[in-house]
Design a protein around this nucleic acid. Sequence first.
DNA 1: GTTTTCTGACACGTGGTATTGTCAGATTAA
DNA 2: TTAATCTGACAATACCACGTGTCAGAAAAC
Lengths: 203, 203
Amino acid sequence: MTTARARNYAGLSAEERRLVRRERLIEGAIRAYGELGYRNTTVKAVCEAAGLTERYFYESFANSEALLVAAFDTVSRRVFSCLERVRKEHRGPAEERGHAVLRAYYQMLKDDPDGARLFVIEIARVGPAVDAVWGALLPQFGEVLARMMAPDSDIKPNPGELVRAGVVGGVVQIAKEWIRSGYARNVDAVAADALKICRVLAA
Amino acid sequence: MTTARARNYAGLSAEERRLVRRERLIEGAIRAYGELGYRNTTVKAVCEAAGLTERYFYESFANSEALLVAAFDTVSRRVFSCLERVRKEHRGPAEERGHAVLRAYYQMLKDDPDGARLFVIEIARVGPAVDAVWGALLPQFGEVLARMMAPDSDIKPNPGELVRAGVVGGVVQIAKEWIRSGYARNVDAVAADALKICRVLAA
DNA sequence: GTTTTCTGACACGTGGTATTGTCAGATTAA
DNA sequence: TTAATCTGACAATACCACGTGTCAGAAAAC
């Protein structure tokens, strides 16, 4: 019954090695998608960017969309934890807090253009499964923006769902245009423009 | 030298028959895209919806994207001419005019769900050529919204480009959510929510 | 009625990528 | 060292829709 006894390589167990490869694929995907766009990125290209071959792709992901979702998740966690941190740091007036959070958001997009493209552009309209991921994130994003504009950061404001969705759509559209322009205007100016739209959420 | 002398069929010249078929393909495309989504719609499916065969597809369009652009153009002309008409009809206060124009916009989306899906959803992220068409429409849309919110409808207001883009993004995102909900809320309520965002444009 | 042109149905080749399979060589444990 | 396992390169296959070509029959002209 020697059912393929797992053997350590480079001091790592089989499962650990798999997870390392998974991470490398995700980072490779972020770079590849950022450079070529998801649509033009073949499985082969991602594997090359990760320094691995196709067999390891299918070891960790069922298909391209699964990797896209994983990569998006990685970036989205980074962004959200940052925004939440900044929001909690600022207990002053809503205006100031709003500007700080938006500034952090756009600054992150500028600091990591590959991640930005994935988070803002490439995630959209890939397929039902991927769209559902973005669909689930939208209300969360709205919640963060609504809280950041609440008079007291701990109070839960309650504008209509459509209004929240609209504000998120506006903030993201501004990001799209800004990215398309090659980050032409400075971060503060962009955040100030976005804040104008977010004021709709001020209860 | 009888180089295929054009012959009338059903009282129409060869060119007229071609244009009729072209129109049928466009209308078929709007219906097919609305039902299946552009991505899942094959050339064959469009032709079936139009009651024609593939040969006539390539008679009028170089490829699928060309038809998508033509179909989008058709819908977008309808929408814009309606919005412009409504805007010019209302010479009262900006608030009232804004609500009327937005109401007309969302009403059109509700009255023609296939066209709505094409105009709001299916056009996005198909490819560079198609994206360029939407990219060109965005500022126009922003211009319409800005004028509708100007104190005097004839005065040309001038908020920043990013702000305009953001507002358009918001209005469209609201449309997306509303469509996704199956047009759950009534048109007036949706227009009122969108108007909240458009107030940012009031000079 | 005969001939010419148009129309619709369908078959076929093409291209490009996903996904699976094979195998030699590298790495580790005994 | 030797045997077992892992790894990477690459070949082979599957698949899907586009775009083109063929051909018989319908519709118009004469």
